[in-house]
Computed example of a mutant assay.
Amino acid sequence: MKLPLLLPALLLTATLAQAQLYEARTSSVNFDKRSRDAVKVEVEASADWTRDFWQRWLKDTYNIKLKGDGVFGVGKRDNMMAKQVPMSSVSGQLIDLYSTVTAPADTVSELSVWAATGPDTFLAASSGEFTSLRTIVQSFGTAARQRAYRERIETAEKELAATTKEKEKLEKSRASLASNTKSNLDKIEQLKQQNSDNKRKSADDSVKLLDNARLLELRQAQLERQRARLLNLDRQ
Results as ranks from 00 to 15, higher is better:
33 K>H: 10
23 E>Y: 04
164 T>F: 06
9 A>E: 15
2 K>Q: 13
234 D>I: 13
196 S>A: 11
60 D>S: 11
151 E>L: 15
216 L>M: 12
24 A>D: 01
19 A>Q: 14
209 L>F: 08
159 E>W: 05
152 R>T: 07
156 A>S: 12
156 A>E: 14
53 F>C: 03
151 E>W: 07
24 A>Q: 00
30 N>G: 04
59 K>Q: 02
133 L>A: 07
41 V>Y: 03
207 V>T: 10
197 D>P: 03
234 D>K: 13
195 N>Q: 03
62 Y>N: 07
4 P>H: 06
27 S>C: 02
138 Q>P: 09
152 R>D: 14
77 R>H: 03
15 T>M: 13
212 N>S: 09
193 Q>A: 15
236 Q>E: 13
158 K>P: 00
142 T>K: 13
224 E>T: 11
191 L>P: 02
139 S>H: 06
116 A>E: 04
67 K>Y: 08
50 T>G: 01
93 Q>A: 06
52 D>G: 05
216 L>R: 11
220 Q>N: 15
93 Q>R: 15
56 R>F: 07
119 P>F: 04
49 W>R: 05
190 Q>M: 04
103 A>V: 09
99 S>Y: 02
202 S>T: 14
45 A>E: 04
76 K>F: 00
75 G>C: 01
232 N>H: 13
113 V>S: 07
53 F>A: 10
57 W>T: 12
141 G>S: 09
50 T>S: 12
90 V>I: 15
154 E>C: 03
197 D>C: 02
114 W>L: 05
160 L>W: 10
108 V>Q: 00
5 L>A: 11
194 Q>I: 04
54 W>V: 01
39 V>C: 00
191 L>W: 08
236 Q>F: 12
15 T>K: 09
118 G>Y: 06
184 N>A: 14
